[in-house]
Amino acid sequence: MGEAIVITSGKGGVGKTTTTANLGTALALAGKRVCLVDTDIGLRNLDVVMGLENRIIYDLVDVAQGRCTVQKALVKDKRFDDKLYLLPAAQTSDKTAVTPEQMKKLIQELKQDYDYILIDCPAGIEQGYRNAVAGADEAIVVTTPEVAAVRDADRIIGLLEKEENIRPPRLIINRIRSHMVKSGDMLDIDEIVMHLSIDLLGIIADDENVIKASNNGEPIVLDPNSKASIAYRNIARRILGESVPLQSLEEEQKGVFAKIKKFFGVR
């Protein structure tokens, strides 16, 4: 029986889709069977970031409304043997085409076949959000070091904490620019973690290679040398239960790192 993890944020453009693609790929690289589910109906792009858009025949709405089986709609990522699949969102319907009950049933079904189901959540707190969290066991909240993003993350955490079937959410802080943190123009990590007071799962630097990789349909995690890639792999290992110290930015941010260490020390 697999685990379903929703990746959410409240605010758009903070890196949910990028995170879903990279964590899914990293988990598949670690030998797990992974299914990615894009719930951003109407604005799908997980397929693009994964480089799978040309192979889509059926989508989430088709499955939810019973027009085809899940198996038929899943797109196999040939790069990973039999490890990684994508259930794409519909491009032509809107978020109300699927109900939370249908999502619950669908995710339950996928959990029979996969170790991890990663659910890419749309921005906002309306039906798209409710669909995305309906079947989840766990939640990852993505934010960037900006006041508005942290505010929305706080709102989402408040909503997630009300979901009885979801374990306490964990945090990823994305797109950190260390020079801006140092100059005080960006919130520092310690500040964000204190404020949101949930466990920190990882931090990812702002890296233009992430954008290039996404544009090429090759998640950055496939590039063994980039810092963002290492950060994503480490997060995947933490999801798998390993205790991995924070890696990516500590050379530049020794002070911050020292403060953060305590959040991992307890694990």
């Binding site: 505010r151 929305d152 706080d154 709102r155 955490i157 408040g158 904490e161 007071s197």
Partner: peptide, 11 residues
Amino acid sequence: VSVSKIVRSGQ
């Protein structure tokens, strides 16, 4: 009334 929680944005 004692309440132990974080009152988050929107709550």
